[in-house]
């Protein structure tokens, strides 16, 4: 078994404040996980704002350098040291961003991004070959070149734009996509088409996806494995079904309890147990703790008794 991506004990601290009151915040603390090359999977990072999930994604894309620890992609450090290495890395690890309405320059036609991707990463020169590559990728996401060519972003819906963005990312045939909250800004009626698409990419095209979200329900729906992050720390990690059906860490349990269910629509059940909130809040700043493995395969952070 070869590893596709290996995140090894990665931390990232940001310096805040001025010269006199210099504070450091740990955005990510000692995160470790790895993805295997043979079995494509959807690996989900769950967290609220300030959990460090986006920082972690940026580090995997090579947009930030870890303060300590290392991230390797196929055995080489992510990002690439030289320009050639960097291009090779970008061809293999592609991002999908959060806001489809911001994903393309509103003043420019969408197809130019796809065209540029095909020309740079596939090395295509011939016009028909470029168009064929664009059309293939667009067909994969349920669009076609005829629908997209010459269109401006405002002429398409959020769902179509997000699909076009995913098609763009798929052109170099990357083994790994990093999708940072890809559906949080997409309309409800179009959201599932994107989520189903990510699933199809894994099942039919063998693409691994790192899916970053705050939404437990879609995470449960599509992911194989997941990690739950609280204030930069992984608090629980394991098989998605196992963890979400029966979360063990108090913070994971609070998150699950906070999901608004539609099962009892109209009953107006909204109260959250305040003890749960208090416990989870206390653990956010509790010192250290370490991930301990459980018989069912999950890892849970446990803390020294205070």
């Amino acid at each position: 078994m070869t590893t596709l991506l290996n995140v090894d004990n990665v931390s990232k601290t940001f310096a805040m404040g001025g010269l006199l009151s210099r504070k450091t915040t740990a955005a990510v603390q000692n995160a470790s996980f790895s993805l295997a090359a043979e079995t494509p999977e959807i690996f989900t990072i769950i967290g609220e704002s300030g959990s460090g999930k986006t920082t972690l994604a940026r580090m995997i894309l090579g947009l930030e350098t870890p303060t300590t620890g290392s991230i390797t992609f196929r055995g080489k450090p992510v990002g690439g040291a030289t320009k050639v290495e960097r291009m090779a890395f970008m061809a293999a690890v592609q991002p999908v961003f959060q806001n489809p309405f911001e994903a393309f320059n509103p003043l420019k036609q969408i197809d130019r991004y796809l065209e540029s991707t095909a020309r740079t990463f596939l090395g295509l020169k011939d016009r028909t070959a470029v168009e064929r590559a664009m059309d293939e990728a667009l067909q994969t996401v349920g669009l076609s070149l005829a629908e997209v060519k010459g269109r401006y972003p405002h002429e398409m819906s959020g769902g179509q734009l997000q699909r076009a963005a995913i098609a763009r990312a798929l052109i170099p045939n990357p083994p790994l996509l990093i999708a940072d909250e890809p559906v949080s800004m997409v309309d409800a009626s179009l959201r599932m088409s994107i989520v189903n698409l990510l699933k199809a990419l894994r099942d039919d095209f063998g693409v691994s996806v790192i899916y970053i979200t705050h939404d437990l329900a879609t995470a449960y729906y599509i992911s194989n494995r997941l990690i739950i992050m609280q204030r930069g720390r992984i608090v629980e990690m394991g098989d998605a079904r196992t963890v979400l059906e029966n979360p063990e860490h108090p913070y994971s349990r609070l998150l699950k309890a906070s999901v608004l269910s539609t099962e009892d629509a109209g009953d107006g059940k909204l109260a959250t147990n305040p003890d749960m909130v208090a416990l989870a809040t206390r653990l956010a700043t509790a010192p250290g703790g370490q991930l301990v493995s459980r018989p069912d395969g999950r890892l849970v952070r446990v803390y020294e008794p205070v």
Binding site: L63, M87, Q94, Q98, N105, L114, S116, T120, R168
Partner: peptide, 13 residues
């Protein structure tokens, strides 16, 4: 810092 700039970077521009 707009997303379309990052999109352009990853489109190899």
């Amino acid at each position: 810092h707009r997303e379309f700039t990052r999109q352009a970077v990853f489109a190899g521009m």
